[in-house]
Design a protein around this nucleic acid. Structure first.
Lengths: 209, 209
DNA sequence: ATAAATATGGATTATCCAGTCCAAAACAGT
DNA sequence: ACTGTTTTGGACTGGATAATCCATATTTAT
């Protein structure tokens, strides 16, 4: 009766249908944005009817929230196992290459799957803003965790603040996504990440450069 | 007869009306995005009728292009005279403070006036993407110009690439805008810019740090 | 097997909104 | 003043689309 809940009161079949809807909506939103994604398109892509869509989601807004969560999980999963152990300069460089590779494969399209949604909805949908923030924080937190490990190990100087460095690196990532999307070239992403990684490298105990 | 042209064949009165429409649309788009901005709202805010709007713009798309140009000019103008002479570390730091101050005054709302539009339209409106790219490049070019002057003066080491540094700094700026908008806190913008400025400072001939 | 809950089909509605149309008014040049 | 151009008013249309509704099928539990 309460369709907004995610897991309970759903048979396996129902859960599968729900997932199909979310996945279809996520794909559509990724390449067209929230406002330009019509529920008719989502229904067609997922192969469901109106009543199914509204059985699992109260309205478009609720579906968008589910999409944000879905994309957050997808991002975290796509970057494992690297993202779980960003605790050395080589690991950070490898992670950089992974992200650049993904964007290359996407032809620089779409930008950040949740950042784009955040940008579109931040001023008009407070709840969506909160969900995007939670997703971004999980991502950023993984980076911070790695840097913290580096510092605890003595690879980063004691004065280096893992939280600040992670935030700065993450901002460079997001800006790189945007510029890469608008320019249709991965270079902004590469240059931004490299610059921030160099900055982090300069704070290592035994500077490589 | 050709309403897409900007300046010619318009009486002063006509130009004023056109500007009123663009300004109203720009304000609305800044805080709601393109798709969520209805032309009815624009008409009401500008105090014009349908025939006026369509007299000066072929369609919504054409109006959006004019808004992108308008916002580009506004950004450049708002950052003068600092933006025109970013040729020293103190100047760069002052510029950082100016931008952070602007976002503070805006309560962290809206993000980058053209970057947000780019994010929303990059995949669905190629022409808008091009216009946004042109605007971003003008902005980024001003930064690059300052860094180039620094290098020519010997304040930056010869190996430092002004174009790369400007691109990296600009990406940090855009990412900072986005995170600041989603978090409703200027800290991401501050941290991202400071980190990139520190990185630039580390490439000066006589390192201050 | 039967009843209750869950899942699905698809037509329908009510609203919003981009864009059109037919004028009329204001203005410019002569 | 006269004529053509520019500017303006505002009703109207066609289409898209989020959301509703009622009926039917399928599954689950006892």
């Amino acid at each position: 009766m309460k369709p907004s809940q995610a897991s309970t009161e759903l048979t396996p079949k129902g859960m599968a249908t729900r997932e199909r809807i979310v996945a279809a909506a996520a794909a559509e939103i990724f390449e067209r944005g929230v406002a330009r994604t019509s529920l008719d398109e989502v229904k067609a892509a997922a192969g469901v009817s109106s009543s199914q869509l509204y059985h699992y989601f109260a309205d478009k807004h609720a579906l968008v929230l589910a999409v944000i969560e879905h994309q957050t999980e997808a991002i975290i999963a796509a970057q494992q196992p690297l993202l779980g152990a960003l605790d050395s300069l080589p690991a950070l460089r490898a992670w950089r290459d992974l992200i650049v590779g993904i964007q290359t494969r996407l032809d620089c399209r779409g930008g950040c799957p949740i950042g784009s949604i955040g940008s579109e909805l931040a001023e008009t949908d407070p709840e969506a803003r909160t969900f995007v923030l939670a997703g971004l924080n999980r991502w950023q937190g993984a980076i911070e965790q790695g840097l913290r490990t580096m510092r605890d190990r003595g690879e980063l100087r004691a004065e280096a603040d893992p939280e600040e460095l992670a935030l700065a690196l993450f901002a460079a990532l997001q800006g790189g996504f945007l510029l890469t999307q608008v320019e249709r070239d991965t270079r902004p992403l590469e240059v931004a990440l490299d610059a921030m990684l160099d900055h982090i490298a300069s704070m290592t105990a035994t500077p490589a450069a």
